[in-house]
Write a protein that binds this DNA or RNA. Structure first.
Lengths: 184, 184
DNA sequence: CTCTGACATTCCAGTAGTGACATGTCGAAG
DNA sequence: CTTCGACATGTCACTACTGGAATGTCAGAG
């Protein structure tokens, strides 16, 4: 049910069409809550049915400009203040780690290296986002920067963990690599 | 499609029934990939239909003991080696941060404090898991500890970020109450 | 004038996950 | 001998999300 609130939040900053919202999503919320076009339009319809938003005007090309209603604003506040965010529970990347026993030590290390590189790439992407929004000062961007910093730190964690995990895997099976291990 | 591979992975360590797998899940994989009972049984059926696992024997109370087939082992290896894990993209917690403009600074800070506490609680939970598995030495546990360490670091990140973000929010609106309940 | 590309919406089939319910067996304790 | 809790599986309705296709409008470039 979070897309619903993401849309209410975006519309709280000003009226917009489905198409506008789709564009807005791309370089902001999509980083923390992606949504496809079909999902977005569907949700807008349901939101309108529920009276949380209204069609403020119909423009050219069938464009419908939506605006939040008072009920919508209320719902958004309620969600922000009273509903606890669901913690993340699914980590496909970590799931595989449990099964390292099924592959060779070298393959496991290669997997971890890839993860490290993926985090590096993600860090570059975030740096770009940071540059793009560097001169914006709207509410949305100001607070979005908090999320951005989370991303930066998260990527660092990812990289450092992978480094450490490679060490652990090597220590557990020293035959895989040049690093010797004490034969007590 | 990850539950499929989680089950193949569990069965790779030895045959088990749906019920057994459900229990196994609880204190290991559920931390990185939760699944409900209905999902699990459903997936076992599909896995058997696909020939990736077979019913090795039927015991008392309708118990069906499943074992991986060669095709299943192959599929698991393929997934481990060739399929890139999907990165995490949904952070309900961060989504709300974008909308801090809709609530008071004090409420935003309270939200971040709650997040910090949630991370603390999660850290305690992981510490317990760590204690529980301290003396196990199976493959599963050994590699699971890598995932556990990720969790520990992740919680630390969560807490430190929240601390930092509170500072940022305060800096952005200095009228907010700075030391809420410290009478020193 | 025509074509292209951005604007703009709607619908649909399919998959994954949730939560609840229904059903039944077996061993052990009282 | 009954009842209770662990064992054990199956089914259903619902929601969220994915990916793709279909449809059409309008402005500006050539």
């Amino acid at each position: 049910m979070s897309l619903r609130h993401a849309l209410l939040g975006l519309l709280s900053e000003g009226p917009a069409s489905g198409y506008d919202l789709l564009k807005l999503f791309e370089n902001s919320l999509a980083n923390v809550w992606p949504a496809t076009q079909s999902q977005l339009y569907g949700e807008l319809g349901r939101l309108a049915d529920a009276g949380l938003i209204t069609v403020r005007s119909e423009g050219a090309r069938g464009r419908k400009e939506y605006a939040v209603t008072e009920a919508g604003r209320e719902e958004l506040r309620h969600w922000l203040l009273d509903v606890k965010p669901a913690p993340i529970r699914r980590y496909e990347m970590l799931l595989r780690v449990f099964f390292f026993g099924q592959i060779s030590t070298d393959d496991a290390i290669a997997y971890l290296r890839e993860q490290q590189q993926a985090a590096e790439a993600a860090a570059e992407h975030l740096a770009e986002v940071g540059k793009m929004i560097a001169h914006h000062q709207d509410n949305f961007t100001v607070y979005g920067r908090l999320a951005l910093e989370w991303g930066v730190r998260s990527n660092r964690l990812h990289q450092e963990w992978a480094e450490w995990a490679i060490g652990e895997v090597k220590a557990h099976d020293p035959t895989a690599n040049t690093e010797p291990c004490d034969p007590s």
